[in-house]
């Protein structure tokens, strides 16, 4: 129970369904702030209080579990290391994989609980993970890293509802968090300044910005970690002849940020590593599906082929801004088939 409206309503529905429910709030920050600033961040004392009051309203026991060390090792340090290696990680996905459906679930099961219930917007029935009915709020993408074993001990009671319905239900139930704003951005970077956070952790690492067409140095950067594939704004480039330039690639070894024209962003093929199959195994060695390559991104018809432990995905409609480190999630309609971490991309 984060202290937000979704987990509060999820807990309420689990109680209504007759389960024996215990509320758990995760303390994930080593130095939690005491109050929220706007809608950013999480895990403040104010959020913990909101979660506690929701548990009180539901009449369930409530505890705070301190997972700050695990979270820092598995999510925050991983986030920094991935950026340092020129990739673009998704920390929410990592948190689901390593914290919510690993550390929390393992501890809960050891204590005699059967499942972890969360307020994620996704459907889960009979082992099939599906998109939420609210496509704008769907979180199946960040849950697609969960293994069949993890999903067997997960419950997402909100998947059949829109966010508006969830808020209305919270209000109807008298939960004070009904109107609490959604959290945004990355919870451990409450000021939203990801580049500044990474600069503090990784230090400045000046390098060249190179135009992919001419191989000419067209600018300098203070650290490749401040750039994301597909980025256009804030490049501060001269000598581009007035043509719009986008980040095409980040090359960690030479510390080069490579830029080029928009059409060079199109990715038609990608390779994914560490595939995870929602049902425990791939449907076949080669199959048609639809693929999503970033959170809240659009999908493309795709063909996936397995080569040993890697996954080759051909996107029938080339996608822009596909960054190594993000996940490619494969769907059959609105049902998740599996996911992999994007390792390389190609036109």
């Amino acid at each position: 129970m984060s202290g937000g409206v979704d987990s509060a309503v999820a807990a309420a529905r689990a109680v209504d369904a007759g389960h024996d429910v215990t509320g758990v709030h995760l303390a994930l920050s080593r130095v939690p702030a005491s109050t929220r600033s706007g809608a950013r961040g999480c895990c403040t004392a104010e959020d913990a209080r909101d979660a506690r009051r929701a548990a009180d309203a539901l009449g369930i026991a409530f505890y705070v579990w301190d997972l700050a060390e695990r979270f820092h090792a598995d999510v925050v340090d991983d986030f920094v290391a991935e950026y340092g290696a020129g990739r673009t990680p998704n920390p929410c996905l990592r948190c689901n994989e390593r914290i919510k459906f690993a550390a929390v679930l393992d501890r809960a099961r050891a204590l005699g609980y059967d499942a972890v219930v969360t307020g994620h917007h996704a459907r889960l029935h009979g082992g099939a993970l599906r998109r939420s009915v609210d496509s704008a709020k769907d979180q199946s993408y960040v849950l697609a890293v969960c293994t069949a074993e993890q999903l067997a001990h997960a419950m997402f009671p909100l998947g059949e509802s829109t966010k508006d319905e969830v808020r209305a239900e919270a209000a109807r139930r008298g939960l004070a968090v009904a109107a609490k704003p959604d959290s945004h951005d990355i919870c451990f970077i409450p000021d939203g300044d990801t580049a500044g956070f990474l600069r503090r952790r990784l230090g400045a690492a000046p390098g060249d910005v190179v135009d992919d067409e001419t191989d000419a140095v067209v600018g300098r950067h203070d650290g490749a970690f401040a750039y994301t594939v597909g980025q256009r704004r804030g490049l501060g480039l001269a000598h581009t002849g007035g043509r719009p330039r986008y980040v095409l690639a980040i090359e960690p070894v030479s510390n080069v940020v490579r830029v080029g024209a928009a059409d060079r962003l199109d990715v038609g093929r990608l390779t994914g590593v560490h595939p995870v199959w929602t049902t425990g195994r791939p449907p076949s060695a080669s199959f048609d599906c639809s693929a999503q390559v970033r959170a809240h991104g659009s999908t493309s018809r795709a063909t996936a082929r397995l080569h040993r432990d890697a996954l080759d995905v051909t996107l029938h409609n080339p996608q822009r801004g596909v960054a190594p480190g993000q996940a490619v999630v494969l769907y059959d309609g609105d049902t998740v088939i599996g996911s992999a971490t994007i390792d390389s991309t190609d036109a």
């Binding site: 215990t22 026991a61 505890y63 579990w65 301190d66 501890r107 050891a110 204590l111 005699g112």
Partner: peptide, 10 residues
């Protein structure tokens, strides 16, 4: 100990 407290509480 935290888990033990929780179990005793239950």
């Amino acid at each position: 100990g935290d888990a033990l407290l929780m179990l005793l509480d239950a």
